[in-house]
Write a protein that binds this DNA or RNA. Structure first.
Lengths: 253, 253
DNA sequence: TAGTGGTCTAGACCACTGC
DNA sequence: CAGTGGTCTAGACCACTAT
């Protein structure tokens, strides 16, 4: 850095600071290392703590830092790639797919999902909760909505709720022939519930993946999965069998 | 502060405020409507402006609000779905794909891209800039990196740079047989350049879509596209021909 | 208990938009 | 020009984690 022109461009302090810190991160810190605390850092760079925090927030958003209350700020490892969609489409829970079924309740789906499923507004649907763990870390929390019409033979199952019932719902679902998937990704913020499962604070940025599963000419199930945006890079497709560990870029010095 | 419960759950003010505003948005405002200014809103809810802003930032992140300096805060329309990947894989610019080539320069690619392309660190690659407009709004800015090896017959083209050359590069690229695509989506923040193209402030949250195009057993091109996270929902696949306008949920009253 | 990040305040000034 | 959101400050207290 050295220079800084004053001419014509009043670059915000936090933006400049973010760039300075990015370089420092690249050159002077290694993954997992703890940064000085916010008060010290602010003092060192001659800014108010709030301004310093604005820069740190950006860096956290970009996956460069991880902050934990009561602990400190650490240099984050490169984001991990998590496979979300591939060539061969499969039902959730089919094969061994990194997800763990946690629970299943009968409850009305949120309006947005109701519309996709074309179910009644007050109608109960099977609501399966699953979590996904990768590299020992929770990366996603999912709610899978399955209308009773998609799993008509479920009645015989004893377990009224819980993981056992969740697995039963999935098993029944697999009996249908999957005709297609339609997926959407958007930015969201973690609900209180999801935040707890993801070990983050409520409001943390998440990537929301909504998947509609088609069977028998209708939407047979809808999945809403929220991935930690700070630690995950969602991957799609498999590029003709090539599957390289992605994420180059960062390295310690 | 007046009272408020003391029992067990000190919910942050900005979080509570966000929820209150969300309901107000659902019930009392319609798309495009202008909210009261931040100072008035803060006073109305009895919080400092910074706290109010924290709530507004969350809502903007969720795509519910749009804020423009010098103008005001308006209720945002539902996010638009933009198609990013579908069953049939195509080269960028093949068919009529909503993108507009803007420029092309010869320059070294960033390290991350260099690694994917397996080109030399200092080697120049054709760098095509394109923008994508949807519903009259800029939604994405892209940099497409094409090593010379992928377009060997380009030498004869006159235009050294500019849109004409960009189109020429794409045309040459289409002569290769596309063997596969590998895509990744992650959260990022807009660079100063991208921000300008997207009509946003630098640092705004964006969805970064990195695509590797395979041909001849190698990565023949790499595209890095940044989509406005506030206005876009990225869609993948086509679910057997079904293509419904998504995004239910919001409505004015 | 000491130290961290998270929340909140009440001000100030700046940059931009529109009239 | 007046009015908007964007940046910045200097403090305070709270919630959490580790020791």
């Amino acid at each position: 850095m050295g220079t800084t022109q004053l001419e014509t461009v009043p670059e915000p302090k936090y933006w400049h600071l973010k760039n300075v810190l990015t370089e420092a991160l690249d050159s002077e810190f290694s993954v997992g290392e703890i940064l000085p605390n916010e008060r010290d850092l602010a003092a060192r760079y001659g800014v108010a703590r709030a301004t310093l925090r604005q820069a740190l927030e950006q860096l956290e958003l970009e996956g460069r830092l991880q902050r934990r209350r009561g602990v400190g700020t650490t240099v984050a490892p490169p984001r991990m790639g998590v496979a979300v969609g591939s060539e061969e489409q499969t039902w959730p829970g089919e094969g061994d797919d990194a997800w763990q079924a946690a629970d299943c309740q009968a409850a009305p789906a949120p309006p947005a999902v109701t519309e996709l499923l074309e179910t009644g507004r007050e109608e109960d649907v099977h609501t399966v909760r699953r979590t996904r763990v990768s590299h020992g870390q929770p990366v996603a929390a999912e709610l899978l909505y399955v209308p009773d019409a998609s799993v008509p033979d479920l009645s015989g199952i004893d377990a009224p709720s819980g993981a056992a019932r969740a697995r039963a719902v999935l098993r029944e679902l697999h009996r249908l022939e999957l005709e297609g998937e339609y997926r959407a990704v958007e930015l969201g913020s973690a609900s209180a519930e999801d935040a707890k499962e993801l070990d983050r604070l409520p409001g943390s940025p998440v990537l929301v993946v909504t998947t509609r599963f088609y069977a028998g000419g209708r939407t047979a199930a809808v999945s809403v999965a929220t991935y930690r945006a700070d630690t995950c890079r969602l991957t799609f497709g498999d590029a003709g069998g090539v599957e390289i560990d992605p994420t180059p870029e960062r390295r310690a010095s």
